[in-house]
Design a binder for these strands. Sequence first.
DNA 1: CATGGAAATGAACGTCGTTCAAGGATTATT
DNA 2: AATAATCCTTGAACGACGTTCATTTCCATG
Lengths: 208, 208
Amino acid sequence: MTGKTQKRREALRAALIEAAERRIADSGFRGLTARDLAKEVGCAVGAIYTIFRDMDALAAAVNARTTARLEQAVAIALAGETDGDARRQLVLLGQTYFGFVLDNPRLWSAIFELGYRGEGDDLKPEAEHARLIGHVARPLERLLPDMEAARRLLVARSLFAAVHGIVSLGQQSRFMPVPPSEVSAQIAFIIEAFCDGAVRRRQGEREA
Amino acid sequence: MTGKTQKRREALRAALIEAAERRIADSGFRGLTARDLAKEVGCAVGAIYTIFRDMDALAAAVNARTTARLEQAVAIALAGETDGDARRQLVLLGQTYFGFVLDNPRLWSAIFELGYRGEGDDLKPEAEHARLIGHVARPLERLLPDMEAARRLLVARSLFAAVHGIVSLGQQSRFMPVPPSEVSAQIAFIIEAFCDGAVRRRQGEREA
DNA sequence: CATGGAAATGAACGTCGTTCAAGGATTATT
DNA sequence: AATAATCCTTGAACGACGTTCATTTCCATG
């Protein structure tokens, strides 16, 4: 019957992440405190540190969960439209990203409010990020067929970053506030302009 | 000789902002503490609160200074190239933005790490932001002459946001790290693609 | 020079993340 | 089943943080 403590640890870990997520979701990243959390899950403050190195590691775990949910939302949105043209898919992708941010503003902000992570960390969000970029790269594959894969990944990354920038500045009430519908239009505009420009540039290269 | 205290207050204010800026520049936003700051400028901790409502207000003052310097850098870069075509100017603008971020990474990050500002604040960064967007809108004026000014401001804003996104994700070592030269290339790429797409779309509208 | 009011002081307060000696639980041994 | 050995959890304690406020110090004025 080896592993009774282990079960308890796993349960506590899950409870901690869930409670922390709830707290971040409706009080923001700074509203996450060790004492409140311990009270909410019914454990001692020290217990948190038997599972996570520090509070940042706990926040990182919540962020990983958020990123996974975002990736899932994107995957679901794209599932129903595999046959449409690339432009429409990319726009849909951008709108889904924006929609997710509108639905989970504080959880999404927490991803970027967390400072630089140390190196000795067991968390690997890179895989989730790669899958996210993959969702962008796939439509690009049809739009720019004869581009080398590595280069296409970089293009996908910059397109993603561009949309991210629009959403990011759109969320900040300072920096010229803009209504959501306008942000949505800006996303569509930049994606389509980007696509047009990219294929045109590619065709120009071919002729030369 | 009325106003000796006032002079001292102004000197203290300047010293506080300067010291806070130094501290943020080489220790990051979180490295700014009231006690260290007081020790550095040689005043009591309470003195800070006779000039700033709280530490966030001080950070906001530093951020305003940073934004002003960014705007100045952009203005200088554009001053020597008023006659070039719009695309080149916009790319130059993006590179200047990126260069500024490379030179002042922590000061720039502080702008976005500061949480939501209260309403009863005497600081108005909006003017500086408007001037920044103005530098983007001016070249666009030549690129899209028959677009209404308000719409062009929105386009300028999304182009700025797109470049900001690329720089922003480029600065985060997580999220697929990319060398500066590649970030620079991505900026040029997205700006030119954006311009191509925008004018093409505009011409298409005209024909229809 | 005296004096009234404004401004600076720094000890004190409450809260934060984090630690660690002490105590309790779980497993291994007889 | 009882004891020993090991691990784990606990929550009071620590240092540092932002912020406040009774006290002291200073300056402009009569």
